[in-house]
């Protein structure tokens, strides 16, 4: 038994020819279509997506009417259910007081402008993300454009990433999202074009990867702009001319727990 050398060469030679032939055939019938299909989505390399949150503008608006447009739109378009209890809570973008957002930055005489005030939190899409480092299945990974992505179809639900994330940005589906209390989620799923998650997997903010792919900005940023508050800014840190770089150039910005070396890409203008 066993394949003779001659036969092996014949088969492999033929396979190569067929392989080339396959591509060549496509080139003849539909020129460029293969290359187009193999191109990455318009996100592109060399980008470093980031968010700059103008805390002053945001707080002013919240003071007025308790605004939570960004949270509502995000959780609506991503089918994030409301379980009504902190134990099973799932959140992609949420509010936390200044003291809890920046636990190492509080002092007894902190300015009244921020003391106890609600800040907007989301995944920091760290440049050096510990959650990606610890994931045993590559279910979460860092894209070339900086987005920390999550594949809920590969996640085994070990929750190592939740232990690894120092920002509490990850949520776990303790139960089935489709069984969330109906009175709190009357029209769930709220977006038929976005998947709901099964129980037992981790999820988080993806900077609206599905919108980035279409050349749109994240929904939270758009929602904030729509109501003319413009407290959330999204852009490319790698581009010197970008709006986010411009903002950071002229304002003092802080990040959450920078001392951990994770290099968060969400900045807060104070």
């Amino acid at each position: 038994m066993g394949v003779s050398r001659r036969k092996f060469l014949k088969i492999s030679g033929l396979s190569v020819l067929l392989g080339l032939g396959g591509k060549a055939a496509f080139e003849l019938l539909a020129p460029g279509s293969i290359d187009a299909a193999m191109e990455p989505a318009p996100i592109g390399e060399g980008k470093r997506w980031a968010m700059v949150i103008d805390a002053k503008k945001c707080l002013e608006k919240q003071e007025k009417d308790g605004c939570k447009e960004c949270i509502d739109i995000c959780h609506r378009i991503h089918n994030v259910p409301n379980f009504g209890n902190p134990k099973e809570e799932i959140k992609w973008i949420w509010k936390e007081t200044y003291e809890h957002t920046f636990p190492s930055r509080h002092n007894d005489y902190v300015s009244e402008d921020v003391h106890g005030k609600p800040f907007i939190l989301l995944c920091n899409h760290c440049t050096n993300p510990p959650c990606v480092r610890v994931c045993p299945t590559k279910a979460t990974w860092k894209r070339p454009d900086g987005v920390v992505m999550m594949d809920q179809h590969r996640c085994i639900g070990c929750r190592f990433c939740m232990a690894g994330c120092p920002y509490g940005s990850r949520s776990f589906n303790w139960g089935d999202s489709r069984e969330a209390p109906k009175e709190l989620n009357p029209d769930f799923p709220t977006n038929m074009e976005y998947p709901t998650r099964s129980k037992g997997v981790v999820e988080k903010c993806t900077f609206c990867a599905e919108r980035l792919a279409k050349g749109q900005i994240p929904a939270c940023v758009e929602a904030c702009a729509k109501i003319k508050v413009n407290a959330l800014h999204f852009g490319d840190l790698a581009d010197e001319e970008s709006e986010v770089r411009e903002l950071l150039r002229h304002h003092y910005a802080i990040r959450r727990k920078p001392e951990l070396g994770t290099e968060p890409n969400v900045f807060y203008l104070i």
Binding site: V134, T137, C155, I156, G157, N173, K199
Partner: peptide, 19 residues
């Protein structure tokens, strides 16, 4: 402890030495 035990073999099918 796994949330999605059916996928446990993913640890072998997608070996991740950094984890």
């Amino acid at each position: 402890d796994l949330g999605y035990p059916k996928r446990i073999m993913n640890v072998v099918m997608h070996p991740t030495p950094n984890s």
